[in-house]
Design a protein around this nucleic acid. Structure first.
Lengths: 116, 116
DNA sequence: TAATCATGTAATTACATTATTACATAATTG
DNA sequence: CAATTATGTAATAATGTAATTACATGATTA
């Protein structure tokens, strides 16, 4: 069972455009090196390495040394875990989402509800 | 089409245990008030209001005044949008996740690859 | 082995996040 | 209308994030 801390780390890692772009590129090119990855972005190599550290902490990226290079690989398991958890939590609600939006939209105009 | 900024906001909003708990409670009790919501947590009402502001900014919570209370409602649309986007991005990869994990696990021990 | 190449570490800076307490506003009720 | 209730705002403090430049380490190759 995925923990709250793991979910925090996974969502935080995904909450930055650059990190999502990094993840896309790792997925597209498994084994890509740190330097080649950094060359895709306008920010410094160090900034990209910091982002990689965040992604590794969340378990979304796995890496290993290969000579003087470090090769990067994606690990979808944290996303899978989050997906499984949130599907359970919200799947029933998703089916009813239109009525929920309607409900919310009318909130400001409604009379007070009883029993709350 | 969901923008990068919207995804940033949605993931950031979900990247805190308290905010996910708030979302769970709003879902369980649509129309719950701010004060009643705050009573569920150990942190101050103001802290909960700050979290609510983050959730509203991401569009995950919608609220409306009802007398001197503010009633809270969940909006699953941002989650649905993120889900749709990431299903497109990763669905093929998920199917192959076991081989990817194996690939990554062997990374440190492998010989250099050609052509990179 | 000296030069080069790829990555890693340290120090620093600017800004954002998360929380607090104290006070202000606005609606309800006795 | 005074007291209460519910929410909102302001000021502040501690911590975390995201980026930079400068330098260090460790592997390859001429």
């Amino acid at each position: 069972m995925i923990t709250n801390d793991e979910m925090d780390a996974t969502f935080h890692a995904l909450a930055h455009t650059t990190r999502r772009a990094i993840l896309d590129l790792v997925r597209a090119e498994p084994g890509v090196t740190v330097g080649k990855m950094a060359s895709n972005f306008d920010v410094s190599r160090i900034a990209v390495m910091n982002h990689l550290a965040v992604l590794e902490k969340a378990g979304l990226v796995i890496s290993g040394k290969d000579g003087r290079s470090r090769r990067l690989y994606m690990n979808v398991m944290p996303i899978q875990d989050v997906y499984d958890r949130w599907t359970d939590t919200f799947s029933a609600h998703w089916a009813d989402r239109l009525s929920t939006i309607k409900h919310a939209a009318e909130a400001a105009a409604r009379k007070p509800e009883e029993g709350n």
